[in-house]
C-alpha cells in the first residue's frame, strides 16, 4: 500500500500471486510515479511461458512511471532502451545456468502493459498493449472501461511487448479524456480486470489489504476470479485541500 502526500491523489497498489505459487513467482508488476504532475502509473503482466518476465514487467512499469512515457508516440524510442536494460539484467543471471537457461532467455520475455498519465489541467492520456484494463470512475459509476469492456473478450492470446529486438512489436492502443475531483482510475491486469468487469469496479474504492484479500479469496473460490496473478492500482482524485 502506498499513499501520496503532496499531490491531491490517493493511490494504492493491491497485488496477489496466483494461488499455489510462491510470492517470488508473481509475474505482474505495478508502479506509481513520483509525487508530481503529471502523475503516472502503470501495470504489466509478464507471460508465464517466458522466463525473466517479471523482470521485464518491472522494467516496463518503472519505465512508464519514472521515465515519463506519457505519449504513446515515445514508445518506439524507449522500447530499445528498456530491452537493453532487460538484457543487462538477465545476462548476468544466466551465465551458470544449464543448457535450457540461456536458450530460454534467448527467446526473450513478453508482457502486456497499460500506462496512464494524469495532468494537472484535468486531462489524462493512456496507452495499452494487451489486455490490462483502465477503469475511469465518476461518482462511483464506471465512465469507461478500456480497451476491453466485456468480460467475455479475454482470450489468453493478448498482444505482448517483447524484451528482445526481433519479434514484431504490436501497435499500442491509445485513449485520452478529462477528469474531475472525486473521480478515480483503476488499472488492472487481465484476471482482476475480467473479475471487475463481471462485478463492480467501484468496490475497489473500499479496499484495504484485508478486504482485497478476502474479496479475491472468495472470488477465486467461486470461479469469478480466474486463478492468476492479480494486480490493481487505484488512483483517487481529491480536491487540493484533501490531499494531505
Amino acid at each position: 500500500m502506498e499513499t501520496k502526500s503532496v499531490l491531491p491523489v490517493v493511490s494504492r497498489i493491491f497485488a496477489r500471486p496466483k494461488a499455489g505459487n510462491a510470492p517470488e513467482e508473481y509475474e505482474d508488476a505495478a508502479a506509481i510515479g513520483d509525487d508530481r504532475w503529471p502523475l503516472r502509473a502503470a501495470v504489466a503482466d509478464g507471460a508465464t511461458e517466458t522466463s525473466y518476465s517479471r523482470t521485464w514487467a518491472e522494467i516496463l512499469t518503472e519505465g512508464v512511471a519514472q521515465a515519463g512515457v506519457s505519449a504513446v508516440e515515445r514508445l518506439p524510442t524507449v522500447l530499445p532502451q528498456w530491452q537493453a536494460q532487460w538484457d543487462r539484467d538477465v545476462s548476468e543471471q544466466i551465465e551458470d545456468m544449464p543448457w535450457y537457461g540461456a536458450e530460454k532467455a534467448a527467446d526473450g520475455a513478453f508482457a502486456t502493459l497499460l500506462g496512464i498519465s494524469i495532468y494537472e489541467d484535468n486531462t489524462w492520456k493512456a496507452f495499452s498493449v494487451g489486455d490490462c484494463v483502465l477503469f475511469h470512475l465518476s461518482d462511483d459509476e464506471v465512465e469507461s472501461a478500456w480497451p476491453v469492456d466485456d468480460p467475455r473478450e479475454f482470450d489468453h492470446r493478448p498482444n505482448l511487448l517483447p524484451s528482445r529486438d526481433g519479434p514484431p512489436v504490436p501497435e499500442p492502443d491509445a485513449t485520452e479524456g478529462e477528469w474531475e475531483v472525486g473521480d478515480a482510475f483503476i488499472l488492472a491486469t487481465d484476471a482482476a480486470a475480467q473479475w471487475l468487469l463481471r462485478t463492480d469496479p467501484a468496490a475497489v474504492l473500499e479496499f484495504d489489504e484485508d478486504r482485497f484479500r478476502l474479496a479475491t479469496d472468495s472470488a477465486r473460490g467461486t470461479g469469478g476470479l480466474r486463478n492468476d496473478d492479480s494486480t490493481i492500482v487505484l488512483l483517487e482524485m481529491r480536491a487540493p485541500e484533501e490531499g494531505e
Binding site: E25, E49, S51, Y52, Q93, Y100, G101, E103, K104, D107
Partner: peptide, 10 residues
C-alpha cells in the same frame, strides 16, 4: 523443456 523453463529452473 523450454516451455517449462523459468529463471529458477524447469
Amino acid at each position: 523443456v523450454l516451455r517449462c523453463a523459468k529463471e529458477e529452473g524447469v
